[in-house]
Design a protein around this nucleic acid. Structure first.
Lengths: 193, 193
DNA sequence: GTCTATAGTGGGATAGAC
DNA sequence: GTCTATCCCACTATAGAC
C-alpha cells in the first residue's frame, strides 16, 4: 500500500500516524508534522501535494490493518472446538454465531486500539478513488461471508460502527457495561432463522 | 427548553441554527453568526459566554425535536389495523415490529431532514450536564419501550446511528438502496423470539 | 531536500467607550 | 446592547534561494 511512496514519504506518514494516534485529528497539522521530523512545514510539500494526500495514506494503512484483523478473526474459527471431530482431523464448519462474535470483537478491538485513526477512516466523504483498488471490498468480505447477504452485512456493519462511535463519544451512560449490547446486536444480526 | 433564554438570545440561537443547517458546522462561526444578525461578533458575548454555549442550545433543540418525532411515531400505532377489534372500540396492542419500523423511519427522516444538526448532536463529547434534565432519557424511552430491555435498545440505537452516519458520509456503495438494510436491522433487533 | 520569508485566510475572544 | 479596536492564535500553501 505504501510501496509506491518514497522512503522519505513513508517516514512522513509514520510521523503523521504517531501524531494522529497520540493527539487526535486536530493535532495533525503540517507544522506539527514537520516539527516532529525536525524540518520546516514547507518542506513537506516536496513529498506530498497537500495535507489530504497524507491523510489518504493513513486511511489506507488503517483499512488494510482492519482488513487483516477481520480476516484473522474469521480464520480463527469457533472458540470451543467439538472434540472428537477435531481429533479425527475432520474440518468442522465454523458456527456462524461464533464467527460473528469474533468479527465483532476484532472490529471493536481495532477501533479502540486506534480511536483517532478509526475516526479519520470513517469521517467525512470517503476518498474512494484515491485508495488502493479492492481494499474496500476486502475489508467488507469477512462480514459478507458470515452473514450471507449484502443487506444484512450492511446492517451489521452499521451496528458495529454505531456502537464504536457511541462508545468513543461517551454517548452511553457513564459506566455502562456494553458487552451485552454487543452480544445482543451481533447474535440478532448473524443470520435469518 | 429555551425558556430561560432572553428574547435576544433566542434570536441568536435561531440564526445559528439557520447557519448550521444551511452550511454546516464549519460555517457556524461567531463572525458569520453576527453578520447574519446585522451586528458585530463581540456583541454576541453579551448574550452567551462563548461559542460552545450557543451550540449547547442547538443540541438541546435538536434532541427535543427528535424526542417529539419518536414519540409521535410510537403513538401512531400499527399501520394496518385489525378491522373488527377496532370497530368494537377495543384497544389493540400495537405490533412491536410495526412500532419498531415506525421509530426507525422517524429517526432516519429526522437525521436526513437536519443532517448538520444531527451531526452536531452526535459529535464529540456529550455536554450531558448542560442539557435540560431528563431530555436524554425522554429521547431514549420510545425505543426502550418497544424493545423491552436496555441492552437491546442500545444495540438498536447503535444500528440506527450507524446507518445514518454511514449514509450521510457516503460510505455505502454509491446508488445502493438501503431500505432493505434498514428493514433487516430493525426486524432483527425488535425483540427476542 | 531543505531552507527563509511570507502571503492569505480564518478563527475565538477581550477591553473599554458609547 | 452595541460599537471600535485589537490581540493572539492557528492553519495551508507558495516562491525562490541554497
Amino acid at each position: 500500500m505504501a510501496d509506491r511512496l518514497s522512503p522519505r514519504a513513508r517516514q512522513i506518514v509514520a510521523a503523521a500516524r504517531e501524531l494522529l494516534e497520540k493527539d487526535g485529528a486536530d493535532a495533525l497539522t503540517m507544522r506539527r508534522l514537520a516539527d516532529r521530523l525536525g524540518i520546516r512545514a514547507p518542506s513537506l510539500y516536496k513529498h506530498f501535494p497537500d495535507k489530504a494526500a497524507v491523510e489518504v495514506e493513513l486511511i489506507a494503512e488503517g483499512m488494510e490493518e482492519l482488513a487483516r484483523a477481520l480476516e484473522a478473526a474469521e480464520a480463527t474459527g469457533p472458540a470451543k472446538a467439538t472434540g472428537p471431530a477435531e481429533a479425527a482431523g475432520r474440518v468442522e464448519a465454523a458456527d456462524p454465531a461464533d464467527v460473528m462474535a469474533g468479527l465483532g470483537a476484532a472490529y471493536r478491538a481495532y477501533a479502540f486500539a486506534h480511536p483517532h485513526l478509526y475516526r479519520l477512516m470513517s469521517a467525512g466523504p470517503f476518498p474512494r478513488d484515491l485508495l488502493p483498488p479492492g481494499l474496500e471490498d476486502r475489508t467488507a468480505m469477512p462480514l459478507v461471508r458470515v452473514v450471507g447477504d449484502p443487506d444484512r452485512a450492511r446492517a451489521a456493519w452499521a451496528f458495529a460502527h454505531g456502537m464504536v462511535m457511541l462508545e468513543l463519544d461517551g454517548r452511553f451512560p457513564p459506566g455502562a457495561d456494553l458487552g451485552p449490547a454487543w452480544r445482543v446486536g451481533l447474535t440478532a444480526l448473524v443470520r435469518p432463522v
